[in-house]
């Protein structure tokens, strides 16, 4: 199988705390995957195991078919971690060149500077950059070796709106050229923007794994709202198939459904006394909140 990363029944414990429990997943070459979840869900620990920074307590992790801890597996990889600051007394360009020296076929320095939007800061001391520019420098470092796969742990934390836009443009270009992306985020819009697959983690396990649209459909569902005439029996509405929940506000009724098409057809054919019909897709945000709170209720 042509997988960038494979995790088989992986668990990681720190003392008595279980950070990751029985996670199995494979990330195919050329896919763009968002690892989504609240703080402490096990995203960072999972990425650390994929990169060989941590050894799993149980199970197996393979990176590009080999041992994640071996430096040879990192040649075609670009990485952004959280909480990293660069060494002192090196300029931005020198720091980039230091990294270029680690790879057999690095991208040109100028290309990296402009990808990160740091052309004007090439001669600035790297450790004096602002938070957002520091993050962009780290993106340049991740891109230094012309990677086949990017692993980004919360990449946009600390970036301002303009930086973010440029950053996502670069990333989309990267994905479009057939390369692999894995990013962790708790910004759902970001996941929705670039990922073709969303893996939701909570309390160390995978609670959902699907394309962003399916996640939205399955877990957020769609919303059907209409104005109900006097003959509408709300209790009966609740019993219809595909209906998840019904909310009323005066005559206005909002129904959350797993299949808006089927429900709409049923309502029309059943000659329900309704008007002003609207169908809207629920956001990934809703899906995410429901997913993580529902899972939390079990614990």
């Amino acid at each position: 199988m042509d997988a960038i990363v494979e995790m088989i029944d992986v668990a990681k414990e720190f003392g008595r705390k279980q950070a990751v429990r029985n996670v199995s997943l494979a990330i195919a070459r050329g896919s763009a995957v968002a690892l989504l979840g609240p703080n402490g869900a096990g995203k960072t620990t999972s990425i650390a195991m994929m990169l060989g920074l941590l050894r799993p307590t149980r199970g197996q992790v393979r990176l590009l078919g080999g041992d994640p801890g071996s430096p040879r597996q990192h040649v075609r990889l670009g990485v952004m971690l959280q909480n990293v600051s660069v060494p002192d007394r090196l300029t931005v360009a020198e720091t980039i060149n230091l990294f270029r020296g680690f790879y057999p076929a690095p991208l040109p320095t100028l290309r990296l500077l402009s990808a990160a939007g740091l052309k004007d800061d090439a001669r600035t001391m790297a450790n004096r950059l602002s938070g957002g520019k520091m993050r962009r420098l780290q993106f340049a470092l991740a891109m230094a070796g012309d990677p086949q796969a990017l692993f980004l742990d919360e990449p946009t934390v600390g970036m301002d709106v303009t930086s973010r836009r440029q950053f996502w443009d670069e990333l989309r270009g990267f994905i479009a050229s057939g390369k692999t992306l894995l990013l962790t985020t708790h910004d759902l819009q970001e996941a929705d923007m670039v990922a073709d697959r969303v893996i939701v983690m909570n309390e160390g396990t995978i609670v959902a794994d699907a394309p962003p649209e399916r996640i939205k459909m399955e877990f957020g569902g769609r919303q059907l709202s209409f104005a109900a005439g006097p003959g509408v029996d709300l209790a009966q509405l609740n019993r219809l198939p595909d209906v998840l929940s019904v909310h009323t506000a005066g005559r206005k009724v909002t129904v959350r459904t797993t299949d808006s098409d089927a429900l709409l057809r049923r309502l029309i054919q059943g000659e329900w006394d309704i008007s002003d019909i609207q169908v809207t897709g629920a956001g990934l945000e809703d899906a995410f909140v429901r997913l993580t709170t529902e899972m939390g209720d079990h614990a």
Partner: peptide, 21 residues
């Protein structure tokens, strides 16, 4: 002192994700 600073700043950990062994 430089090593201690590089370890504390996460830099050493970051370097472990590169081909530099």
């Amino acid at each position: 002192v430089r090593l201690a600073a590089e370890r504390k700043s996460g830099w050493v950990r970051f370097l472990r994700t590169t081909p530099l062994s």
